[in-house]
Structure formats: structure tokens, C-alpha cells
């Protein structure tokens, strides 16, 4: 039992180490700095510049957070402070069900709904021609995917704000909205930030849904309507041929390592913040 427990704790170390060892052949030839900032992606010539993919990931993640955060904050406040408990009982199960839908189904939805929506209704206002396969499509699909995660954490965090604090504010004549603004949001700020960080790391690593709607051109996107090529999509799209080109597997596993390190750090920090909040409650 002890051994199993320790192994489960060490799993993260094994993953990091395994990926690192496999990306060593590439790292021995090129410096990490040049790999991350170069834009030339020519696997056949041994040129591996990850900059376009990193920018693709950042664009998609950024859009997802910008879309999801305001909606989730408002809806979280509504569910926890304003809504009748019966309304809450209706909303929360649907949010849970949304979290269970597999990524590939989100991808199919993106192809069927979001991409045509952008192509026919949004893009024509700004550019002459667009396919709809863009970082915006990826961002919107991702936003819907991270709704459940953000809302469930927000509700948990809001739930830890003591009733007495809110009552005190209300009894001093503050309106419900003022109470939300100055008591609820202020008090739960660390939790909200932790929720955002978790959502970012979730959006960072999402693969298949994003791959299906982003267009996958290895160029740095310059507007939300440009195609992008996020890191996870790069790994997933090229796994078939990665053993046939020298160093290619090393490069792909290096991008998995980048994802792992960033997401590991983000997750660890926000989980520690969240468990502090929980402990303060008890």
C-alpha cells in the first residue's frame, strides 16, 4: 500500500523524466532558447522552431479565457447568490453533464456549428474570405469545454465565504450587488485566480477538439480569424510519421515536455492555493 501510494506520487516525476530523456537528442543539438523562439519548422532539414505553435496555443487559450471567464463569473454569482435553490438544482447537473462530453464530440460540434458560424456570419464583416477554421473557432470550442471546470471551482470557492460576512454587509444597508462585489468577490479572489489558472492549463493541453477546428497552419496567427497550430495538435497530427524522420520524435516529445512542465507548475500552484482556502474554512 505504501509502495503504491509513493509510486502514485512519483508518477509525475516519471512522466517528466521519460519525456526529458526522449527529447535529449534534440536538446543536445540546439539550445532551449533557440528552439522556443525560432519560427522555422522544417522537420526534413532538422529545423525545429516551436514559436508558431507556442503562439497558436497562447492565442487559442487567450480567446477561450476571454470568452469563458466573464460568462462563468456572472453565472457562478447568479447560481450561488441570486438563484432559487430549485433553479440551482436544474443548472448544476447540466454543467456536470457538459463536463462529461468527450473532446472529440466538442470537435465535431465545432466543425458543424462554430466553424460555419464564423465563416458565414462573423468573418465576412472583417475579411474578404475566411474558411472559418481559425484560432477563434478553437477558442470558442475550448471556452465551452472549460465552462464546467471554472464554474464548479467558483461555486466551491463562493461556498467557503462565511454567511455571517454577507449578512453583516447586507445589514449595513449594502445592496445584494454591492455585497457580491465587496464581500464575495474580494474574499474569494485567490480562489478565482486559482480557477483561472486551472482553466488556462486545461485549455493549454486540450488536443483533439482544437486540432479539428484550428486550421493547423504552422504560422504565427496575427488575428483571431487566422489559422493556428497549437502544440498538442502538433503532437497528435504527426505521431504517425515521427519515427521515420531523424530527431522528429525527439522534437514532438520535447513539445509534450513543454506542455507537461507548464501545466504541472500551473496545476500545482493553483491546487495549493485552493487547498489553503479549504483549510481556512475548516
Amino acid at each position: 500500500m505504501l509502495v503504491l501510494t509513493i509510486l502514485s506520487v512519483l508518477l509525475a516525476v516519471f512522466i517528466g523524466l521519460g519525456l526529458y530523456l526522449r527529447s535529449l537528442p534534440l536538446l543536445e543539438l540546439k539550445s532551449v532558447g533557440s528552439l522556443l523562439t525560432s519560427s522555422v519548422w522544417k522537420p526534413f532539414k532538422g529545423e525545429f522552431g516551436f514559436f508558431p505553435f507556442i503562439m497558436g496555443t497562447l492565442w487559442v487559450t487567450g480567446i477561450a479565457i476571454v470568452v469563458a471567464l466573464p460568462l462563468c463569473l456572472l453565472s457562478g454569482i447568479f447560481i450561488s447568490e441570486y438563484a432559487h435553490h430549485r433553479v440551482r438544482k436544474i443548472i448544476v447537473p447540466f454543467v456536470d453533464l457538459l463536463s462529461g462530453i468527450p473532446p472529440v464530440v466538442f470537435g465535431v460540434w465545432g466543425v458543424l456549428f462554430v466553424v460555419p458560424l464564423i465563416q458565414e456570419y462573423i468573418a465576412p464583416h472583417f475579411v474578404e474570405y475566411a474558411t472559418g477554421y481559425s484560432v477563434l473557432a478553437g477558442g470558442i470550442v475550448l471556452a465551452v469545454m472549460i465552462f464546467p471546470l471554472i464554474i464548479s471551482i467558483l461555486l466551491e470557492v463562493f461556498g467557503t465565504v462565511p454567511r455571517e460576512l454577507k449578512d453583516a454587509s447586507l445589514s449595513l444597508g449594502a445592496t445584494q450587488w454591492q455585497t457580491v462585489k465587496f464581500v464575495l468577490l474580494k474574499r474569494s479572489m485567490p480562489g478565482i485566480i486559482a480557477a483561472i489558472v486551472l482553466a488556462i492549463s486545461r485549455a493549454f493541453g486540450e488536443t483533439i477538439a482544437v486540432l479539428m477546428v484550428c486550421g493547423n497552419l504552422p504560422e504565427v496567427p496575427h488575428s483571431v480569424l487566422d489559422s493556428g497550430y497549437p502544440l498538442p495538435a502538433l503532437i497528435a497530427n504527426n505521431y504517425g510519421e515521427m519515427l521515420s524522420i531523424p530527431l522528429y520524435d525527439s522534437a514532438l516529445l520535447f513539445s509534450a515536455l513543454i506542455l507537461f512542465i507548464i501545466i504541472f507548475l500551473f496545476n500545482a500552484i493553483s491546487r495549493i492555493v485552493l487547498s489553503r482556502i479549504e483549510r481556512r474554512m475548516n
Binding site: A12, F14, I15, G18, L19, L198, S201, R202, F204, G205, E206, T207, P232, I235, A236, L252, L253, A256, L259, F260, I263, F264, F266, N267, R271
Partner: peptide, 11 residues
């Protein structure tokens, strides 16, 4: 729990 499945796949 937060590590994406693509990383597990690669590992």
C-alpha cells in the same frame, strides 16, 4: 488530474 491526455499518450 490536470495533466492533459496528450502528455499521457506521449509518455
Amino acid at each position: 488530474f490536470g495533466i492533459p491526455s496528450i502528455v499521457y499518450g506521449a509518455f
